[in-house]
Design a protein around this nucleic acid. Sequence first.
DNA 1: CCCTGCAACTTGAACGATCCAATCATGCAC
DNA 2: GTGCATGATTGGATCGTTCAAGTTGCAGGG
Lengths: 327, 327
Amino acid sequence: MPDKVTIATVAAHAQVSRQTVSNVLNSPHIVREETRRRVEEAIAALGYRANQAARQMRTGRSQLLAVRIEPTRDGINGSVLDRFLHGLTFAAAAAGYRVMLYTADDDGDEIKTFDDLLASYDLDGFVLTGTDHGDVRTLWLAERDVPFVTFGRPWDAPERHSWVDVDNADGTAQATRRLIDTGHRRIAFIGWPAGSGVGDDRRDGWQRTMKAHDLDPTGLDRGTADSIPNGAECARDLLTMPDAPTAFVCASDSLALGALQAAGGRTAVTGFDDTPVAQAVGLTSVSQPLPDAAARCIDLLIHHLDGAPTGTHQVLLQPSLVVRTTA
Amino acid sequence: MPDKVTIATVAAHAQVSRQTVSNVLNSPHIVREETRRRVEEAIAALGYRANQAARQMRTGRSQLLAVRIEPTRDGINGSVLDRFLHGLTFAAAAAGYRVMLYTADDDGDEIKTFDDLLASYDLDGFVLTGTDHGDVRTLWLAERDVPFVTFGRPWDAPERHSWVDVDNADGTAQATRRLIDTGHRRIAFIGWPAGSGVGDDRRDGWQRTMKAHDLDPTGLDRGTADSIPNGAECARDLLTMPDAPTAFVCASDSLALGALQAAGGRTAVTGFDDTPVAQAVGLTSVSQPLPDAAARCIDLLIHHLDGAPTGTHQVLLQPSLVVRTTA
DNA sequence: CCCTGCAACTTGAACGATCCAATCATGCAC
DNA sequence: GTGCATGATTGGATCGTTCAAGTTGCAGGG
């Protein structure tokens, strides 16, 4: 078996010193063209790979990012999480970083994990999915100057830190516009109770679009906890109105599925998130550009890691409506 | 701000040498009771955490495991992957390990990634989800004595390496038995074309159960690519038979969904994997014990890492039937 | 009294990279 | 030919930990 290849092996093979090899890797511009080529050939010939642990010990940087994985949660639910994670891992790898996972029961537990990961693994940064109002985790990280980006904006203070988000209002606006274009006039909204940033934003997109087309949204708005039965109940309730709606814009695929069941195919329905369920039953749904969102998260994080920590950056991405059979 | 706490800081604080502190951490039994307590107090007082990079450089072990994340795939599809990943991360953390993600386009690319991760991060082991016939990845890893476990058994050589799997045959057997118990006699199977280990196993469970109850499965068996329309087509085909089936056991939720659409509620249907789709539409489906499977994967891997590399181990878990409205 | 054996702890070296400061080679001006 | 500036290259120290070898103190046997 071949002995392990270190920077010294490469140096000997290329007839230069260790430092020159290190320079070829980290500051190629200060090495003479010919020498550089010779070293690069030695690296290729020997199959040398820099030992991360040794590098990390000296530089204090691990090239490691961490993301929390949760079985289910509001911010970003199960069916989209894996696509987001894939995007993150892919984008991180392209930038020379790796993604590590961690779990946590609650915010306090998560902060303990931050501390742990930073102390023993020297993590370079975190990606958080979903933030609450007055999130203690972001405060903790900011206090310690730990680089992080959230997927989902902080609703109470948009410029407090860097984030990437999808324009929820634009998503429901697209869905509403599509329904108006196909002839609907009485379009109802089935969403969550007021108070959640994401939910309010989705409701807002529907409401604004209705008004922009001189349609009155009054009385066509319902708020309930996210589940299929609740969606069905709201739909049934709306359908018993005197001037019943002919279409439902829903804040989630779950609610949309309930509405579909209650309406029995006679009413147009749109969902949100384009989950596998939507694909399976042919539900028209708003799709989030997850690979793109993940890539932008990595961009922002790397920017914080490499460049000067001057200010925060925000990225708002546009979703797209996937039209299927229900609208 | 507090200076960084190293093993030397702790040693000075507890009035012992660095090595004694190291011993308290790694071989507590060789340290005298009183000394040990003093060191432990110093560790707690200073909030000391061992630096993984330094430890890794010396020992060659990183306490890091890697899993491939893929957006969609046969072996373990998107909707179950995140639950499995959560389980893995949780179980790994409990054993002092962390989980790292990587992506790969194909098997060759994945092997290149193995090489990369091993060389630069000193990864301790891998968890692979799903294996093909004559998998080149497992061969590559085995040749280099890299510890790994697969979720999904190798169909061509069951004892080649350690694995954890769910008893697919038992899953369809449970579904079939349930249908028989509720009065069905003509029970058809809609699955994939022969040749895939998982698919054949699921077919086998149905077939054996039928025969065990003196029911003739002849002509009640269909194989097709996994999709909703294909499921619907097979169901329609079966329903035109002279002695048409009254129930369908399907090898996946997708096929089951198609069958449901084609049958229009007059026929009992069971799916496989208990995806969110199944929960959404009330489909009775076979559920895999994912958190348990993940925990067993970690168990086996840790066993390989810690103990002697004597032989391989196999774990076969029983799935459970989640009965909803369709059967 | 010395030697051996053992337990408990200490010391020096090493892992593989990067940083720092010193050295060496080169070209150019005088 | 000498002096000097410029810039590539070199050797040594260092990060925090564990391994290997060594030291100390003490009990027991010959």
